[in-house]
């Protein structure tokens, strides 16, 4: 952040504007309840490769033998490393036998609502559909606020803001247009379909809401990734 996006207004003019997310919750920290001494969170090494359960089970497949080994020699403890701070790390992929992969082969697995695997195929990146230099169209499809809040879960929001005097006027006019309509504008990607803000990111339905107050405006893009519908039987 900040990020930018482009959009059209109802007069087919487009402009690049800035977006920002909701305010963060008030900052808080923790102290020890007993005496208010300061404490801080830490991430420490608990187990290292070769000492985890899977590795120990490979070494001692017989549970009885593993139990005896645990009692006799503490093979689960890497004395040199356990308790150290994790520090900066890189993410790697490891195979079932604990070896680092140097060439990862990715699949896309589709699970059904109840967690059952439906299909698996080669993984193909899905590109973002929201880009700074490709304007989102004015769809003209308007929905009332009452319909939107009762039909969609609005799980994320972005506020649109100007980057100069011209874009202030541009956004103010959009906000005024929407306020006067009393409705929210359905927003979709330039080529139609879901709004995807980054490669392989979640797809969203978008609803643009505008309000004006004096010389100020508030233009918010409400984002939803599911409708309020009953869960499949077995899940609810």
């Amino acid at each position: 952040m900040p990020r930018f996006l482009s959009l059209y207004d109802n007069r087919r003019r487009d402009a690049r504007v800035e977006v920002s997310g909701p305010a963060q919750p008030p900052r808080r920290s923790f102290v020890a309840a007993a005496d208010r001494r300061p404490i801080r969170s830490a991430r420490l090494i608990k187990v290292t490769e070769g000492h985890d359960l899977a590795a120990l089970q490979r070494q001692w497949p017989d549970p009885e033998a593993l139990a005896r080994a645990l009692v006799a020699g503490d093979p689960e403890l890497d004395i040199e490393k356990v308790g150290q701070r994790v520090g900066t790390t890189n993410q790697v992929w490891v195979s079932a036998d604990g070896k680092i992969l140097y060439a990862a082969h990715a699949l896309r697995v589709t699970d059904g609502p109840l967690g059952n695997e439906i299909s698996r195929e080669e993984f193909v990146d899905v590109e973002a559909t929201v880009q700074e230099d490709v304007a989102l169209p004015w769809t003209g499809r308007l929905l009332t606020a009452e319909e939107v809040v009762r039909r969609f879960a609005l799980v994320q929001k972005l506020q649109l803001r100007h980057i100069n005097g011209l874009t202030f006027d541009f956004l103010f006019e959009i906000a005024r247009t929407l306020q006067e309509s009393g409705k929210l504008l359905r927003v979709q990607a330039a080529k139609g379909g879901a709004l995807i803000f980054q490669r392989n990111g979640t797809g969203y339905y978008g609803f643009l809401e505008g309000r004006v107050e004096g010389e100020g405006f508030r233009l918010v893009l409400h984002l939803s990734n599911f409708e309020l519908k009953p869960l499949p039987r077995g899940e609810a």
Partner: peptide, 12 residues
């Protein structure tokens, strides 16, 4: 050091 899944602990 290679830390397997679940091999790090978050604490205060």
């Amino acid at each position: 050091t290679l830390i397997p899944p679940g091999g790090a602990a978050e604490l205060y």
